[in-house]
Design a binder for these strands. Structure first.
Lengths: 108, 108
DNA sequence: CTGGTATTTAAGTTGTATCTAAAATAGACT
DNA sequence: AGTCTATTTTAGATACAACTTAAATACCAG
């Protein structure tokens, strides 16, 4: 998969942030989300194949961690993303509101 | 739309590259692709709403151009992608050249 | 005004990435 | 061996972004 596609999926971006500066077992990652472990596992596979996370086995767990160097120019994008994500949620909500308003009144 | 999503669509990335350092009319952009003008127009709208291209009117044409500054950290990603694509072309050309050399009986 | 070109908007179709659920795998422990 | 736990893989459902076609808009020329 193309590097850009890999980090463009919001769930994968959040996973990447979770293992940005610490190791985490797959289960600990999955526990952060309201989706099945299977879904998270599939995302981890994509991230691993892209080289954006490393995997190591410990007991019967698999432990993941971001490989920042592998991200190249995408690294700054990831770092930017979480710095601005809260603001962006607000902006998107406002944009939604404007769209809804325009539908009601066709050209404001 | 999220900046990352905007750039992650391959068609939009190529459009952005087309208008990277020159102005182009919507029609000239659409002519580069094997999809309908409508589809290209929709992509241009997304790029414009993200702020990644500027639009100006000239006669009955609309002329677009990339706004590199607006891309922030994504700028490097676009440039990387473009360079990588060019490298791919170059690699193919070199492979062709090697094949030609071998036909002549040249070095290994 | 009419006709023509450039482009967008509207409405509906389709391909595909993400998801769920269930079965399979791998290692630890007894 | 057998059974735990952690995780992946397979198979199939779903949601959504990119597309198509057709109609609408905007601008220019006669």
């Amino acid at each position: 998969m193309e590097p850009l596609q890999v980090i463009a999926a919001p769930r994968r971006l959040r996973i990447l942030e979770l293992v940005w500066d610490r190791e985490l077992a797959a289960g600990d990652i999955a526990a952060q989300f309201d989706v099945s472990w299977s879904a998270v596992s599939q995302h981890l596979t994509v991230l691993k194949e892209a080289g954006f996370v490393t995997e190591r086995r410990a007991g019967n767990s698999r432990i993941y961690r971001a490989d920042k160097a592998a991200l190249g120019s995408l690294r700054a994008v990831v770092e930017d993303h979480w710095r601005t994500s809260l603001d962006r949620v607000k902006d998107l909500a406002e944009a939604e509101q404007r769209t809804a308003d325009e539908r009601k009144g066709k050209r404001g």
